[in-house]
Amino acid sequence: MDIINELLIYSTLGLYAIAAIFYYLGNKNKINLLPAAFGLAIVALGFNFLSLFIRTVASGRLPLHNGYEFVLCFTFFTVLMYLFYEKYAGDTKAGTIVMLVSTLLYLSIPLLMPYHINYIGNVMPALKSPWLAVHVITAIVAYSAFALAAGLAFLQIKNKTFTKDNYVYRIVITGFATLSLSIVLGAIWAEQAWGRYWSWDPKETWALVTWIVYAIYLHLNRYKNWQGSRANILVIVGFIIVLFTFFGVNYLLSGLHSYA
C-alpha cells in the first residue's frame, strides 16, 4: 500500500508537469497539443482524486486534517476549476501557468512533507469538531480560486491584454466569498474550542491580510485607473500572500494552527 501511495503522488506530480509542458507548446501553436494537454490534466486530476480517496478510506475521515491533505485538496480544486474555466471560456492560455502552479504545489509534498504520504496520525482533540469540514473546505475553494485568478492575471499582464478581466473579477469574488466564510466559520469554531473567536494567531492574521488585499481589489475595481495591469498585480500579490498564509505560517510562524 505504501508503494502505491508514493507511486500515485509521483505520477500525479509528473503528469501535472507534462501537462504544463503540453499546454506551453500547444499555446505556442507549434503543434496541436492542446487536446492532449487537457487529457493529461484530466488523468492527473483523476490520480490526485485517487490519492484523496485512498486516504479517506484508510483514515475513515475526510482528508482535511493536516498540511499534506490540504495540498492534495488545494491542487485538486485548482485544476478542477481551471478545467471548468477552460471549457466555459474556451481559453487554454492559462493552462501552462495553472499546471505549473499545480506541479509546484504537488512538489511541496516530497520536499516538505514526505513523511505524511504513508502516515495517518490520530485526530487531536482540538480538531474533533463538525466545524472542521466547513472551515477547511471553504478555505480550499478560496485558495484554489485565488490560484486560478492569479494565473489569469499573470497572463493578462504578460500579454498586456485585459480581455479576461471580467472572469478574473468573478473568480476573485468566488475566492473572496469563500475565504470570508472560512474566516467566520473558523471564528465560530475558535469560540467553541478556545473560548475566543479571534486571537491574532499568525494564521488568522495572515488570512485577514489576504482578505484585505482582495477587499481592496474589489473596492478599487470601479475606478477606471485601477483596472488593467494594476488590478491584476493586486490579484497576483494576493495569491503570493495566500501561499505565505499556507506555507510560510505553517513552517515559519508557530501558533494555534500548528497541525502540519
Binding site: 491574532w200 492574521t205 495572515w206 481592496i216
Partner: peptide, 28 residues
C-alpha cells in the same frame, strides 16, 4: 469616504503582517 476606508484597510493589513513577525503577543 470609501477611499479613507481602503487606505485604513491597507495600513491595517500592512501593520498586521509586520506584527505577526515582530511580536504577535503584544503587538495587537
Amino acid at each position: 469616504a470609501m477611499k479613507t476606508g481602503i487606505f485604513l484597510l491597507m495600513i491595517i493589513g500592512l501593520i498586521s503582517a509586520i506584527g505577526t513577525v515582530i511580536n504577535p503577543n503584544h503587538f495587537f
